[in-house]
Design a protein around this nucleic acid. Structure first.
Lengths: 153, 153
DNA sequence: TTAGCGGTTGCAAGGAGTCGCAATAACTGG
DNA sequence: CCAGTTATTGCGACTCCTTGCAACCGCTAA
């Protein structure tokens, strides 16, 4: 009865609702992949999700993991985060959208409120009549802890 | 003696200089790939570069195209632009860096001066002490011509 | 509870991009 | 101009991700 279990249950309920509402089927594979991501607490690479899901259900296929992750993303249940050149997935922040700042040195990810992008969006629309899609948006750079350290690679 | 030929020649000279300065060798493959990009006038996908280069030199390998494009990018001779989920390459703008706005509907690409990102960069550094890497930066969205049209896909 | 429609899965094949390696060839010093 | 050094190429194998397809199974209606 930990708060983590409770959060996980809520996530499941909301996801199940989204799936049924839109006519998608509730398959064990989808629920399993969802619970793997939900229980991780943070963002996970596709291969991590695959490995953990396969432990629970050995027939799990990597294609199903990709398809399910894409679906959950479309339903706004999970959020896609680009870390390095790999996509990661995490539960969508119920507090509202946020963006990420990812450190090129330590790979740490930090949340960034959409607030900081609002002005930028506003400018683009004013000046260029260009409606930017800033939903899934990651800024790479060097975090405060790593500043002064040499870049890796 | 068109201005395009002249521009191309200048690009070659500068690229050759960069290569020699840093101890890289001047190979026919590198010069060919460079001239293909230089003569295109805009941004090119890797496969387009490969096809054109292979017409001129049938032994050209796709791996060489990738390696050369990455090298020219490192030398700041070409600039990498993310269009959709594919990387494109163009000659680095001698007028200074610019970013791109790419329309999700018509795939048109528009230049964006770094000026518009400066304030955003400043905010991130002030508030989070996070030094963002905004060198190669593309914003997707819907351009003014396509607004009101249905999104593709 | 059951039949059957059609969305999903697992598999295998395919495309994009990367990497290791042996052969090649661009540069250097003599 | 030539031989040696070593960066670079072309190739094949490999990884990551996507796609086509036949078998499967979740869901609905009777």
């Amino acid at each position: 009865m930990s708060s983590s279990n409770q959060a996980t249950r809520q996530v499941h309920e909301r996801a199940v609702e989204s799936l049924r509402e839109q006519g998608y089927r509730l398959t064990p594979q989808r629920l399993l992949i969802l619970s793997v991501v939900a229980e991780s607490g943070g963002h996970m690479g596709v291969d991590q999700v695959f490995r953990l899901a396969k432990e629970a259900y050995p027939y799990m296929d990597i294609a199903t993991v990709y398809r399910t992750l894409h679906l959950l993303k479309k339903l706004n249940v999970v959020t896609e985060v680009a870390i390095g050149d790999r996509l990661h997935y995490e539960l969508t922040d119920p507090e509202g959208r946020h963006h990420h700042m990812v450190c090129q040195i330590c790979s740490g990810a930090f949340n960034l409120s959409p607030h900081y992008l609002e002005q930028f969006r506003h400018t683009l629309m004013q000046e260029f009549n260009f409606e930017p899609d800033l939903e899934h948006f990651t800024i790479t750079g060097v975090c405060s802890t790593c500043q002064g350290q040499p870049a890796k690679g």
